[in-house]
Simulated assay, not measured.
Amino acid sequence: MSLPPYPPPTHVAGAAGPAAAAYAADVVILALDRAEETIEAIASARAQRGVSRHVWIADQGSRPENLALLAQAVEGAADATLVRLDRNWGVAGGRNRATALGRGRVVFALDNDAEFATTTTLAEAVRALEAAPDLAAIGCRILVHATGADDLSSWGYPAPLLPRAGESFDACTFVGAGHAIRRQDFEAVGGYDDRLFFCWEEFDFALRAINRGRRIRYRGDITVRHKVSGEHRFAWSGTRWFHFVRNRIYIGLKYGDAALALLPRFLAYQVKGARNGVLAQGLRAGPAALRLARRYRAEQGGLDILTPAARDYLRRNDAAHRGSLGARLRAEVLAALPKAQAAQEAPRDSGSPT
């Protein structure tokens, strides 16, 4: 499987493409306004040393004045390219289209409000993947930019593993703020699921990779510094809660869970949504997830049923750390809580599919 032949985006500034026919890594940064932070992320990526790389910035609809600032930041650069996509494809679709532009062996996705912790972080990530041929992806340790403390809103793993934040362990997902994927695996599973738009796209990708016998690993020694504070990580306005609930239920259906088996999780989400004034979003998410799953089945000719080996991997590396089903559901329901309410509560996009 390979990525679809996406229509070429509009070239805005920087190099027309990578200078080398073969190189180690592509750094992918999605842009949508927030020009100052995005420019700092670009500078961090271009400052990476000890590894051949190309930086791709994919704009998804910034205002003209902000797009002009981004263009100025890479004007004349031989190692960076700014393109403008035809519309906002979200995190999943945007990363797919930006990744398809490159040919590096590794794809490192960096949030536009994040920076590499050191000038050798990218090289460390590339070496980590190349040293373990069965790894599809690695998740970096995400630190609060201002303090260097762990960004608890970006801890996408079982809460009992938080004391091991500086260590390494096999995992069932990774955090989008900073992660590296082997391109061969990215293409083998077809990239991210565009239908997700945003929320849970990394978890879904990880499940497909694990289902092919690949591993995901958290690397606490490879770090990214993140500028979004925990208390602002989750916004209850807009449609974020809708996507959070819809996508998690859709993923469960997509991998063969029965709708009735997902009902307790769905009801727990409704309680959480009602407490935060977004009950309507959560209720709409259920039928939307069913529609997505039906569409996926029709388009793919079936569902992505997890193999026994994949389920065993998930049990060992996720469920074993989470405790009872009730405890896991509580962690799921609290996954979107702002850090200010409870530092110990589970982060976004975490949870077991079993």
Rank of each mutant, 00 (worst) to 15 (best):
L3A: 03
P5H: 11
H11I: 04
H11N: 09
A16Y: 00
G17F: 11
P18M: 06
A20L: 15
A20E: 12
A25P: 03
I29F: 11
L32K: 15
A35H: 14
S44D: 01
Q48K: 09
H54N: 06
I57V: 15
Q60Y: 01
G61F: 10
P64K: 08
N66V: 00
L67V: 08
A71D: 05
Q72C: 01
A78D: 15
T81S: 15
L82Q: 09
L85Y: 05
R87Y: 02
W89R: 10
R95A: 00
A98F: 04
L101G: 01
G102R: 10
G104I: 07
R105I: 00
F108K: 00
D111Y: 12
D113I: 09
D113G: 03
E115K: 11
T121L: 08
L122A: 08
L129N: 05
P133M: 05
D134W: 02
A137D: 04
R141M: 10
A149I: 00
A149W: 00
A149S: 09
D151K: 06
W155L: 06
W155Y: 08
A159C: 07
P163E: 11
A171P: 03
F174T: 13
V175A: 13
A177I: 08
H179N: 14
R183M: 07
R183S: 04
R183W: 10
V189I: 15
G190C: 08
Y192C: 08
D194I: 06
L196Q: 08
C199V: 12
W200G: 02
E201C: 06
F205R: 00
A206C: 15
R212H: 13
G213I: 02
I216L: 14
R217I: 04
Y218K: 06
D221A: 10
T223E: 15
S229D: 13
G230Y: 04
E231I: 07
E231T: 10
E231W: 06
R240L: 13
F242W: 07
N247S: 06
N247P: 03
I249M: 13
D257W: 04
A258Q: 13
Q270C: 14
A274S: 07
R275M: 12
L279Q: 01
Q281K: 02
Q281A: 08
A289N: 06
R291W: 11
G301R: 05
P308A: 11
P308F: 10
A309R: 12
A310T: 01
D312Q: 15
L314G: 02
R322E: 02
L325V: 11
G326M: 07
A327S: 12
A331D: 15
A343Q: 06
Q344D: 14
Q344V: 05
Q344G: 15
P347H: 14
S352K: 00
